[in-house]
């Protein structure tokens, strides 16, 4: 059985740093995202999660360090990367079907040739019957379903999510989290999931990258160790609570405060081997 270190990572982030003038947003960030793995990025608001994400996909130039996607250095957004945006980014002048097809038609594929795949994806995300609707006619949750379908339409090897459910109400968010896990189960994409919600980070992630400090850097990378498929009941497991409490204290810890940083880090540590066993979802 292969161990994590032997797999070539889909995303390799190496000593990444970003500065705006004098202000350093983050520095010295290194982590990998392996094929078929979901890595959550979590941190207090304003810690540069979104900036980090934009640097990883080539929407922004980092000041230091490099990013490799499938072994190739990232300069501009590379082929095979898709992104889901916080505010959906659906074009208001396109129907839902045309929005989902965008990644294909923008490369010259005709709407007709794209139709079978568009239909399949609209079905996958549960938007059948809304193909001809315009975004403004749909609720936020439905718009984000369309945003997800658009990202999946290009069959990406890497899927990055920039706080995709932050603009939605709590109920819709709960539903879409599980929907996303279900849909992801049918794909083999590596996923980077940026969120400020600790619960969401634990529920979605196989591993969690915790950012903190000013400028922010990686405080810890946690193996969640909860097997897929996950569901509503996942949040009631002891393991979920353990990981969530650890991440919560790590993120919320106040610099000015004298209380020590979480020292029970060992409580969340698990052997990579046992992780694989618990997982039962072998990406090797």
């Amino acid at each position: 059985m292969p161990t994590v270190t032997e797999v070539e990572p889909m995303i390799h982030v190496d000593h990444l740093g970003k500065q705006y003038g004098e202000r350093t947003v983050f520095s010295d960030i290194s982590f990998d995202v392996n094929p078929g793995e979901i890595v959550s990025i979590v941190g207090p608001s304003g810690c540069g999660k979104t900036t980090l994400l934009r640097c990883v996909v080539g929407l922004m130039k980092p000041s230091h360090g490099t990013v490799l996607v499938s072994g190739t250095p990232v300069v501009d957004p590379p082929e095979g990367v898709a992104m889901v945006f916080q505010h959906f980014g659906l074009f208001p002048w396109k129907t839902i079907a045309a929005n989902v097809a965008y990644g294909l038609t923008a490369k010259g594929v005709s709407m007709k040739d794209a139709a079978p795949r568009v239909h399949e994806l609209i079905k996958l995300v549960g938007l059948e019957g809304f193909e001809k609707s315009y975004p403004y006619q749909l609720s936020g949750g439905m718009q984000q379903r369309a945003g997800l379908a658009r990202a999946l339409a290009v069959e990406p090897g890497v899927l990055v999510m920039d706080e995709p459910f932050a603009a939605l109400d709590a109920q819709t968010r709960d539903i879409l989290q599980l929907e996303l896990l279900r849909i992801w189960g049918t794909r083999s994409a590596a996923m980077m999931f940026v969120t400020h919600s600790i619960d969401e980070a634990v529920l979605m992630g196989d591993r969690i990258v915790i950012l903190r400090g000013r400028p922010s850097s990686i405080f810890d990378i946690v193996d969640v160790g909860i097997p897929h498929p996950r569901g509503r009941e996942t949040v009631d497991t002891d393991r979920f609570r353990t990981v969530r409490d650890y991440v919560w204290r790590a993120v919320m810890h106040d610099e000015a405060d004298d209380t020590p940083l979480p020292t029970d880090a060992d409580a969340v540590r698990i052997e990579p081997q046992s992780h694989r066993n618990m997982n039962g979802h072998d990406h090797g």
Binding site: P77, A82, F85, G89, V154
Partner: peptide, 27 residues
């Protein structure tokens, strides 16, 4: 033009003239 729209075009590596005709103009 919403920065997100332009991000979408960049992520999908859309040619510049398609950005003008497909996004900037309808916007």
């Amino acid at each position: 033009v919403s920065a997100t729209y332009l991000d979408v075009t960049r992520i999908h590596r859309v040619a510049w003239w398609r950005v003008w005709t497909g996004v900037v103009l309808p916007n």
